[in-house]
Design a protein around this nucleic acid. Structure first.
Length: 589
RNA sequence: GCCUCCGUAGCUCAAUGGAUAGAGCAACGGCCUUCUAAGCCGCAGGUUGAAGGUUCGAGUCCUUCCGGGGGCGCCA
């Protein structure tokens, strides 16, 4: 916000230190000043003092740091745009001119509107692959984490200046798919999925197939036979596969629509199969993969041996079964290359759960050994899984799952009830919209607000709690800005410099708005949705506090103009953060 | 056995190596003839698993240990 002022101060500090023979730090690290009613930036001289001490000067670091801070303060005087400077406990605090800063922050948020916080186009292209559900199976709340993390990371990267390709990679093929078809042919021929909740139905039939297989002595053999027919391209099996697979894909799209998730590029495991065989053969020819099929074994890559490493670092990647069918490691080799063939990528990100960490290390290392020159550009972005209370892993087989459909239904139902209670006068159409916005937001927020390295535990009570640190709180703050502004007939005043002594709550709010662009940048740097949720919440909280402490419409005319603009700016910042999170921004609640 | 992640308030979680470790939930007490109370205010609550180390400065980095999760040759 005050880059020019900062730059000029930094230069002055540097030349002062140089003139007085005090060691220069490599860079001056600026951060905002904590616990102050005003704001500005702060740097410290501990490092400088420590450097002096190290070079033989007899100084106590904290004392000397404070001494330098005072010297620098004296040398700086009072630059333009700066209200005052203080030296305290080794820190140099530079306070901005409150009036100018406030106006600047509010103006840029309003002027840039939905682009407030957007980074400049950096000319780089990144692919984010996420979701990757398996067809012929259910979708439970555990599948939500990759969907939300991938979607929002893609949003963040896009907003911060990247060109982003959103990719999905469907698991549409394999033994489990055949198992589903085997059961379908035996017990459900001619049936078609229901109008709604297709995915649930597919999942139920999958569970049934697992059960049936356990009691059917011929089942295993029949499935293998069917698999072979699929491999051979048998028209009947292929047709059944195509049809049933599409049911699943349609079901997934229902859910993606509810979550407002879109993809630019779709890959299927079934597409990788044929080329994977050739890829494996090339690795065998290059003496990277070892073919043990002659002895009834699989085709493997002994990574540690090839790298001359300890035997338990990369271990062994299995590419092909002894019956010459390929495994997903082989498909990943093909897919990794395919992505770069399809797009000129600077980075290729895989949003896949943490249990696959070793797998991706193996795949990427194998590609590197095979001479692929893109391994610097691929990145596995892992996330921890979602458990049920008592550290119970979600498993379709064990029946320990909460279906996504059920969660969405419950959350929207709950949202409807709360809406009726809080705002009985709302008309039905508006209430339906609010219900959807709040229900979906409430589901998404908790997972996005948790660091992806941490296991999430799903429980209904928390999932349906709309109070406090949750999406509805943030949505409500936006709605408040909206309803406040709607009460004003006249257009918003032009740029206003506040002339009144700013209240503490105004200061906090302005500061948070000013930080939004750097939060986006940091989130893109670290791939952290958490930074966005936290900031959205902080903004909402600061606004709610402001709302309760500072009258706007009833304020004196000279205060009112600025506050109206502040409300507008705050609403904009909150809305922008919610949009990045792909959480609906309702106009009323 | 090897690798990896996690451990912060009663519970769930935050915290660019920086000043006084913060929120929510739960408990308790207040605030709606005043811009929507899905809100606000107050009150509590901590040896950041333990011990060393690096650093001017460590919840954060390193080492070891303790406790928990996960991964390790023909599932994905």
């Amino acid at each position: 916000m005050f880059d020019q002022e900062k730059e000029s101060i930094e230069q002055k500090i540097r030349s002062y230190l140089a003139e007085n023979d005090i060691p220069l730090p490599d860079e001056l690290k600026w951060s905002s000043i904590p616990f102050s009613g005003e704001w500005g930036i702060s740097t410290s001289f501990f490092q400088t003092a420590a450097d002096e001490a190290r070079s033989g000067k007899q100084v106590k670091v904290p004392v000397r740091a404070q001494e330098i801070a005072e010297l620098v303060k004296a040398a700086l005087g009072t630059p333009e745009g700066i209200s005052h400077i203080e030296a305290v406990r080794g820190y140099l605090n530079v306070y901005y001119n409150t009036q100018q800063f406030s106006r600047k922050v509010v103006d840029s948020a309003i002027q840039q509107a939905q682009d407030f916080g957007r980074g400049a186009d950096n000319g780089k292209t990144v692919m984010v692959e996420f979701s990757q559900p398996n067809t012929h199976k259910a979708m439970h709340v555990g599948h939500m984490r990759t969907m939300l993390l991938g979607d929002v990371v893609a949003n963040i990267l896009s907003f911060s200046g990247y060109t982003v390709i959103r990719a999905n990679y469907f698991g549409d093929f394999g033994r489990d798919v055949i198992k589903w078809m085997w059961n379908f042919q035996k017990r459900h021929t001619g049936e078609t999925p229901p109008e709604v909740n297709v995915t649930r139905w597919m999942g139920d039939l999958y569970a049934e197939s697992t059960q049936m297989l356990e009691t059917d002595p011929d089942g295993e053999k029949e499935i293998l036979e069917m698999f072979a027919r699929w491999e051979a391209g048998d028209p009947e099996v292929r047709q059944l596969w195509k049809e049933t697979r599409q049911w699943s894909l349609d079901g997934f799209n229902e859910i993606y629509d509810l979550f407002n998730i879109r993809f630019d590029q779709i890959y299927y495991e079934s597409q990788m199969e044929v080329r994977a065989k050739g890829e494996v053969q090339k690795l065998i020819d290059a003496n990277i993969a070892i073919d043990e099929r002659a002895n009834g074994g699989p085709v493997i890559v002994k990574l540690d041996e090839l790298l001359g490493l300890d035997n338990e670092t990369y271990r062994v990647l299995v590419l092909m079964r002894s019956d010459s069918t390929t495994l997903y490691g082989a498909w990943d080799l093909v897919l990794a290359k395919q992505k770069f063939a399809d797009y000129d990528l600077d980075t290729s990100i895989y949003v896949v759960d943490v249990r696959q960490t070793l797998h991706f290390k193996q795949v990427f290392k194998t590609l590197e050994l095979a001479g692929w020159d893109k391994t610097e550009k691929v990145l596995h972005l892992p996330y921890e899984i979602v458990n049920l209370p008592g550290n119970v892993t979600m498993s379709s087989r064990e029946g320990t799952i909460v279906l996504l459909e059920d969660l969405i239904n419950e959350a929207t139902q709950r949202a409807y009830e709360v809406s009726q209670e809080r705002n009985p006068d709302l008309d039905e159409d508006a209430r339906q919209e609010v219900t959807q916005a709040v229900g979906i937001g409430a589901i998404k927020y908790p997972l996005l607000a948790r660091d992806s390295t941490k296991v999430a535990t799903f429980d209904w009570e928390t999932a349906l709690d709309f109070n406090g640190h949750a999406a509805p709180y943030i949505q409500y703050a936006y709605v408040r800005t909206n309803s406040l502004l709607k009460r004003v007939d006249a257009p918003l005043p032009e740029s206003v410099t506040p002339r009144h002594e700013l209240e503490e709550k105004e200061v906090q709010l302005i500061e948070l708005i000013s930080k939004w662009p750097e939060v986006v940048e940091r989130a893109a740097q670290d791939y952290k949705t958490l930074y966005i949720t936290n900031h959205a919440y902080d903004l909402a909280k600061a606004f709610n506090e402001f709302y309760n402490h500072c009258p706007v419409l009833k304020a004196e005319p000279e205060v009112r103009g600025f506050r109206l603009r502040l409300v507008k700016a705050a609403g904009q910042a909150v809305a922008n953060s919610l949009r990045l999170l792909n959480i609906p921004v309702p106009e009323v609640m």
